[in-house]
Design a protein around this nucleic acid. Structure first.
Lengths: 221, 221
DNA sequence: GCGCATATAAAACGAACGTTTGACTTTTCG
DNA sequence: CGAAAAGTCAAACGTTCGTTTTATATGCGC
């Protein structure tokens, strides 16, 4: 062993980070243990020693990536006494910035996208620990806008309409840069985009609220 | 050759369909030529004979899949003299039905999603031949709602807000079924969903139109 | 019928990969 | 200190896969 004590589980850590990058870049199958170990300055056998096999390394890497990115969840909690529109804007801008901000280690989102295309058991865990809390936060904001008595189904449909607008810029980016080749995404563009999605969503929410209210009145009469 | 003349290029066709399924299920790397040929009742060498190598087979399969699914494009062209709201609903319902309708050969969309996660040269072709025409159609509908003089940038942002809501149910489905486990998607649910997205979008468009009009008036004064 | 291009089949090649092995080094602890 | 445990390393094993090769069968013009 080269140094020990300090490094004894640091190899494990380096493997996790390297694995995150490589799995995100190449996907599970195309990623090779040899490549991961090369980037982590570790031996080929290190993976099997620390994690058992390639699959268990993948699962650990996804959980690790999500644990790292989970810090941002608190970042988008916004003063709950602010105006609904401002809270919505904060939510949208925070989520957009999560994958559109430059410089960021982009592989967290890529790993997530791959889990989406080819779900494993880890996805359920992410759904419970990562997505549901954010959904609840967004649902609160939506209810503040369309009325606290709105049924769950309606609120969730609205939440999906909002999140869909945001995530579109994540999932469909490769297509976007091919359809709009000369559009650049700097910080001010991201802010303008968040502003657009906020306005569009507020408009959508108000219309949904109106037609929903009308329907309940019809039913009541 | 077993029969000839008739079958001479039918092997090629069978290879394309089998390749589409397998590539969609497993991804490029994890899919094996042996598996594809087994499903197509063809020899292992058939791929290299008809397509050159695995990559060229993949490119051909993606183009083939997109050519098959392109028939639906005409299906969502809607009488241009109808009301904007009805045209928008047709557009949304048509696109939603494209991947939410039950029974359909689901691998067209999956292949597309994989191209998105790991773009190859074929994606540019799909962008030009498949996406841009639809974008133009949607842009027309949007301009009919928010005003024909709206700048391209604004129209395109609105188009992305609408398409984002739709495609969310495609890209994020694995997550959706984990967050909302007991939600079923039958034909009537798809129709209700299309109705929701239409209402939400009309509300969004009108609000965007208002704030845009206000901004131009400010600039004019 | 004979050459020739076309299509399929069986077998094998060579490289890359995940995993295992066994030896070696360092840490831990009684 | 000294033996067991933990960690690392180079080398090799067995498998799988894409591709190539070689051979065989069929349709077509002359």
């Amino acid at each position: 062993m080269r140094e020990a004590a300090e490094e004894q589980f640091i190899t494990r850590q380096r493997l996790l980070e390297a694995a995150g990058e490589v799995f995100a870049e190449k996907g599970f199958r195309a990623a090779t243990i040899r490549d991961i170990c090369r980037r982590a300055d570790a031996n080929v056998a290190a993976v099997n020693y620390h994690f058992g096999d390639k699959e268990k390394l993948y699962a650990s890497a996804v959980r690790y990536a999500h644990r790292c990115a989970a810090g941002d969840v608190s970042a988008l909690t916004v003063p709950p006494d602010a105006a609904p529109r401002q809270r919505l804007h904060s939510f949208i801008a925070g989520m957009l910035g999560g994958f559109l901000k430059a410089g960021k280690p982009a592989w967290h989102g890529k790993l997530m996208a791959r889990e989406m295309a080819e779900p494993t058991a880890v996805l359920q865990q992410i759904a419970d620990d990562g997505v549901k809390p954010r959904l609840n936060l967004l649902s609160d904001i939506i209810r503040a806008e369309i009325g606290a008595d709105a049924p769950d189904e309606l609120v969730h449909r609205c939440a999906r309409s909002i999140v869909g607008q945001i995530l579109f810029y994540h999932f469909a980016r490769p297509m976007l840069v091919r359809v709009f080749p000369d559009e650049k995404v700097d910080a001010s563009a991201v802010e303008a985009l968040a502003e657009h999605i906020t306005s569009f969503s507020v408009g959508g929410l108000r219309r949904i609220a109106r037609s929903s209210r009308r329907r309940t009145e019809e039913k009541a009469s």
